[in-house]
């Protein structure tokens, strides 16, 4: 971390031969933070049956880790493929789609009937729709807009708006009593995660992570931009396609599992870029994954212990994430 390891501004790949040292330190620090967060979450104020409480909390920690890792890595990938560091999959309409899906299903089947549907069936249904949406995004926008991030973003914002408008409409049609029950599904919740689903989700995310890891050097090249990467012999289109599929899995699985969490990926990935000062995926991917899980567990811990469950981690993250996003915009602009 001494001055002489500072990368030269404008260097195509930030971080030359000295970089890994810094990123390893950062990753280690985040790793320790992760362990502390887990330890706090597991042990703070334990009451009643010890084994039961521990098992409950362990399941929550596992779910949160899964979600944090999935969303953060998805965001890093999305940043690389779209060539910017501000967009997130959530901003592209995933969150709004999830809420719309929940609301529409609750209206069609009746909230209580909907909530009684076999969780695995529901999970698969949601997963299928979200994957379809991701593929649609990939097809229509990444292809057609080719590098035009601005257009991609506007498209996402407008689609979010449309999903939300329809969702609001349907929400009005639902009986107020039923709505209270549905409301819990609209915000990410970790309290009632099905064990088998957790296992299946973990497998999905793990497979996706392996693919990401194997592509890490190609992703570094893609981060340089389409033309640079092509001239380096990387099949940019293929990497983009595969990456978008991975993003779809890494976003859809956590969201279907627990619900929508806007901004988590954005906070984790940009925090990691700032701390590691590198864009090498072998550094950013593990660091962002750990950071995402840590932020989520820490936020949930604080909320459970100090807000007495009267709010949700996703709301708090939306609030602070939005502020962080604006700060980021201002900072990016000052370069």
């Amino acid at each position: 971390m001494s001055v002489d390891t500072e990368p030269i501004r404008g260097e195509p790949i930030r971080g030359g031969t000295f970089r890994p040292r810094r990123s390893i330190v950062v990753t280690a620090v985040i790793g320790v933070a992760f362990l502390i967060a887990v330890a706090c979450f597991m042990t703070y104020d334990l009451r009643g049956s010890l084994s039961y409480a521990l098992e409950l909390r362990a399941r929550k920690v596992a779910a949160m880790t899964l979600v944090g890792v999935g969303l953060s890595v998805a965001t890093v990938l999305f940043h690389t493929v779209s060539g910017n560091r501000i967009l997130t999959p959530a901003l592209m309409g995933f969150d709004a789609l999830y809420i719309l899906l929940q609301t529409v299903a609750a209206y069609l089947f009746g909230t209580f009937a909907f909530l009684r549907i076999e969780v695995r069936v529901r999970f698969l249904g949601e997963l299928a729709v979200m994957m379809l949406f991701a593929l649609f995004l990939n097809h229509i926008f990444l292809r057609r807009t080719r590098g035009d991030v601005v257009l991609l973003m506007l498209a996402g914002v407008v689609m979010s708006g449309m999903f939300r408008a329809i969702g609001n409409l349907v929400a009005r049609l639902i009986d107020p009593n039923e709505f209270v029950a549905l409301q819990d599904r609209l915000f990410a919740s970790f309290s009632s995660v099905d064990e088998q689903l957790l296992g299946a989700s973990a497998v999905c995310v793990a497979v996706a992570l392996v693919v990401v890891w194997r592509m890490r050097y190609q992703l570094d090249a893609v981060a340089l931009g389409h033309d640079h990467a092509s001239s380096l012999g990387v099949d940019v289109d293929r990497v983009t396609r595969v990456s978008m599929a991975l993003v779809a899995v890494l976003v859809a699985v956590p969201t279907a599992l627990v619900g929508a969490i806007t901004f988590l990926g954005l906070l984790a990935s940009n925090g990691v870029y700032l701390a590691t000062r590198t864009f090498r995926h072998r550094s950013t991917v593990p660091a962002a994954a750990l950071a995402g899980a840590t932020i989520l567990i820490a936020a949930q811990f604080v909320i459970e212990e100090f807000f007495a469950f009267n709010t949700r981690a996703s709301m708090v993250l939306a609030f602070f994430g939005g502020i962080a996003f604006i700060a980021l915009l201002l900072k990016e602009q000052r370069r």
């Binding site: 501000i86 601005v150 914002v157 609030f319 939005g322 502020i323 996003f325 604006i326 915009l329």
Partner: peptide, 14 residues
């Protein structure tokens, strides 16, 4: 041209 409305949208989101 788009950073401005993007920032406004985020402010609205907060």
């Amino acid at each position: 041209i788009v950073v401005v409305p993007l920032m406004g949208l985020m402010l609205g989101a907060v």
